[in-house]
Design a protein around this nucleic acid. Structure first.
Length: 106
DNA sequence: CTAATGACCATTA
DNA sequence: ATAATGGCCATTA
C-alpha cells in the first residue's frame, strides 16, 4: 500500500534531475514536514517505482546514506550519472538540487 | 492502544 | 577526525 506521506515524498523525488542529488532533509522540507527526514528515508526504503530515482537522495551533510539494494549500487548509479563522489561524499554546492538552508554554511 | 524500528540529524565528547 | 547520544517521525508489529 502507498500512504499519503509516501506519495508526497515520491512526487518530490521524481523531480530531481539526472546528475543531481537532493537530501532527505530537503525533501522533508519540500513536503512541509521539516523534521521528518528520518521518515523520508523510511518511505524511500520501500520505494518500488522506477520513476522515483531514490538513489539521488543523500544525507544532508553530503554522505551517501543508505539504499535498499546496497550502498555500492547507489554509488555506482550516481557516478554513472556524472555525480562525483569524493571520499564517500558528494559536494552539495555543486550537485545539490533543492537543498539550500543549513548545510552550505559549513 | 503501545512499543519497536530505521536509506536521518545535530550535538557532544 | 570518529563515536555515542538523544531527538525526530511515519510505519509496522
Amino acid at each position: 500500500m502507498i500512504t499519503p506521506f509516501q506519495r508526497k515524498v515520491y512526487n518530490v523525488v521524481k523531480k530531481i534531475p539526472h546528475g543531481r542529488v537532493s537530501t532527505y532533509r530537503a525533501v522533508a522540507r519540500a513536503i512541509g514536514k521539516p523534521r521528518a527526514a528520518r521518515a523520508v528515508g523510511g518511505a524511500l526504503n520501500k520505494n518500488l517505482f522506477r520513476s522515483v530515482p531514490c538513489h539521488r537522495v543523500v544525507r544532508s551533510d553530503g554522505l551517501i546514506g543508505g539504499y535498499a539494494r546496497g550502498v555500492r549500487s547507489k554509488i555506482g548509479i550516481l557516478q554513472g550519472e556524472g555525480v562525483e563522489i569524493i571520499r564517500g561524499r558528494v559536494d552539495l554546492a555543486r550537485f545539490g538540487f533543492l537543498w539550500r538552508e543549513t548545510q552550505f554554511l559549513k
